[in-house]
């Protein structure tokens, strides 16, 4: 009988997918990882529906309604939830808009830009509505682990995942969490 693999889901909210690129940077270690886990919903699998999972890994912060719904769903379906990278942990680059009014941000793009025809702020119900500020994900749901970096290096991700899967406390070596 085959030992059942842990189910892992990942997603990118308001992020740049850089953390997922770093995840792919695991290279041949992905084969070792695949021995132990099975990906559920993730940009890597293109599965759209989230199942019951053991681990959820979130890249990116919370900028719109869809981000909120996705994050809430991950929290409800994943036993352990991880904030990966600067945007998930602190809002990151997208949160630089927090110092401006949302109105100014949207007008800058949609009404004051050059070459615009029929300039207006988009209001199609299919487009997720923006929150007035970008928030780190721990302000919306409880987060169990934080993996810092912009993005965290593949080595840091590997250390983190290996220790987590082995049931050990997480200790990242200094070389994997300094960025200069």
């Amino acid at each position: 009988m085959i030992e059942s693999k842990l189910k892992v889901a990942t997603c990118s909210l308001c992020g740049c997918f850089g953390c997922h690129m770093s995840l792919l940077d695991l290279d041949e270690r992905l084969f070792d990882l695949a021995e132990k886990i099975e990906f559920d919903r993730s940009p890597l699998t293109d599965i759209k529906e989230l199942g019951e999972c053991d681990i959820g890994i979130i890249e990116g912060g919370i900028a719109n309604v869809e981000n909120v719904h996705t994050l809430l769903e991950f929290r409800a379906r994943c036993k352990v939830l991880i904030a990966m990278g600067a945007c998930a942990i602190s809002g990151g680059v997208p949160a630089m808009r927090n110092q401006y009014e949302l109105k100014d941000c949207l007008e800058e793009s949609y009404t004051r830009g050059t070459g615009l025809v029929d300039a207006q702020i988009p209001n199609d119900p299919e487009i997720p509505l923006l929150l007035d500020q970008v928030h780190p994900i721990h302000e919306v749901v409880k987060i169990d682990y934080f993996l810092p970096g912009c993005p965290p290096s593949a080595d840091a991700i590997w250390t983190f995942v290996s220790q987590l899967l082995a049931g050990q406390p997480i200790t990242l070596p200094y070389t994997q969490i300094h960025y200069d």
Binding site: V65, V68, E101, L102, K103, L106, I121, P122, N123, P125, P128, L129, L130, L131, D132, Q133, H135, E139, V140, V141
Partner: peptide, 22 residues
């Protein structure tokens, strides 16, 4: 949550005039 999420949508609702459930 650390902030009132529905209230955080007020500005965008006003800017877009949207009142749909989403």
């Amino acid at each position: 949550p650390a902030f009132d999420m529905n209230a955080a949508l007020e500005q965008a609702r006003w800017l877009t005039g949207r009142t749909d459930p989403d």
